[in-house]
Amino acid sequence: MKRRTFIASAIGAIGGISACAWSGNDRLHSGAALAFGTTISISVVHDDADLAQRAIADGLMAAQAVDRLMSIYNPASQVYLLNRDGMVLRPDARLLEVLKQAAQLSQMSDGAFDVTVQPLWRLYSESAARGGLPSVAERRRAQALVGWRQLEIDDAIIRFRRPDMALTLNGLAQGYAADQALAAIQAHGIRHALLDTGEFVARGRKSRRHPWILGVRDPRDAGALAATLYAQGCSVATSGDYECTFTPDYRHHHIFDPTAGDSPDELASVTVLAPNALLADGLSTAFMVMGWDRASALAAKLPAIDLMSIDKQGREKRSAGFPSDV
């Protein structure tokens, strides 16, 4: 579904329990599950192995529940039903929360973030399957179906105001899943954790002497890192032009500028640090569309938001508060 753009070098053994001495009986415990078409994982530090594993299981289940609710592919999900029927009655409170946040992101980004770009993604995917790109007329028809203000969001009903619209929560669901998983493990008293749902949440530390460490991949070399960061008390998300491409030159990809009906052409990737993963996830998409100048100006107005961008020529820029490399 989305961006496996970090290497979580501190995450430990996938799917099992690993030990890392901290103090007393504290150990690092890890678990993994499938969601969003990939492997998600949680690592926690605690002295009670049974409690740690219960917390991990609850966190993974919380993330999987978000996937089931918001998948565009699962016929049982409310997003699937909304795209099929144009409306969904008695929407789940979690879906309402995410869509209301989406509307706020659209407002603050002047429409750069828009969950209704799914018709454009569908058009480009179908055209790529035929070995080409859509015509100008096809693009304009799809673009006419995009518009976040045409999505009615109410506690009793969510519906499109125009026929044939569709949405995707690919720019929010994984971040929200990380936040939901964090709440689930914190309910068990867990204070030190690293969560990976495709977006990352870090709380506390891996050990007394070692913080959690994340690596940002180079957008043009999957085996190389563009940055290596200490992650403490923050959420981190990256959007890039390399995860789902329609042309080998990375010009056309899965992120769309609603005003152009095509992919933005300035940046190759954007990494965002934010207080929660939902916001980091959404802003990383919005900033890809906005480009460095507009993105950095918006970030400067928002509390605890920092970003690093890499443009198509490989040039890197960081906001003043973005951490330096480890």
Rank of each mutant, 00 (worst) to 15 (best):
M1W: 13
M1E: 15
I14N: 02
G15E: 12
G15N: 10
G15W: 12
I17L: 13
S18V: 14
A19Q: 11
C20G: 12
A21P: 13
A21D: 11
A21N: 10
R27Y: 08
H29N: 07
S30M: 10
S30E: 05
A35K: 00
G37L: 08
T38L: 08
I40Y: 04
S41C: 11
I42C: 02
V45L: 09
V45A: 06
H46Y: 05
A49K: 14
A52W: 02
A57R: 13
L60H: 10
A65V: 03
A65Y: 02
D67V: 04
Q78N: 10
N83Y: 02
D85W: 02
R90S: 11
P91M: 06
P91W: 04
P91L: 04
R94D: 14
E97H: 11
E97M: 09
K100Q: 13
A102T: 11
L105I: 11
M108T: 13
D110F: 08
F113K: 00
T116Y: 08
V117Q: 00
P119N: 03
L120R: 00
L120V: 04
Y124F: 15
S125T: 14
E126C: 02
E126G: 06
P134C: 01
P134D: 03
A137Y: 09
A137Q: 15
R139N: 13
R139G: 10
A142L: 10
A144N: 07
Q150M: 07
L151V: 00
D155Q: 14
I157T: 14
I158D: 02
I158R: 03
R161P: 01
P163A: 03
L167D: 01
A173W: 01
A177P: 03
A181T: 12
A181M: 09
A184F: 02
A184C: 04
A187I: 12
L195G: 04
G204E: 00
R205I: 04
R208C: 12
R209I: 11
P211T: 09
P211I: 05
G215H: 15
V216F: 01
D218F: 03
A224P: 00
A226Y: 00
A227F: 06
T228K: 15
L229E: 03
Y230D: 15
A231F: 11
A231N: 11
G233L: 04
C234N: 08
S235W: 05
V236T: 11
T238E: 13
C244W: 11
T245H: 04
D249A: 12
H253E: 06
F256T: 08
F256G: 05
D257W: 00
D257Q: 01
P258M: 12
P258L: 14
T259R: 14
D262G: 09
P264I: 09
L267C: 02
L267V: 01
A268H: 02
S269N: 13
V272D: 03
V272M: 10
L279F: 06
A280Y: 01
S284T: 07
A286E: 00
F287S: 01
V289R: 05
M290H: 14
M290S: 10
G291P: 07
G291D: 07
R294H: 10
A297N: 09
A297M: 08
A297H: 09
A297L: 07
L298E: 05
A300N: 07
I305V: 15
D306S: 15
L307H: 05
L307D: 02
M308T: 14
S309E: 02
D311T: 09
G314T: 08
E316A: 14
R318P: 07
A320K: 11
A320G: 05
F322C: 08
P323T: 12
S324R: 13
S324T: 15
D325E: 12
V326D: 10
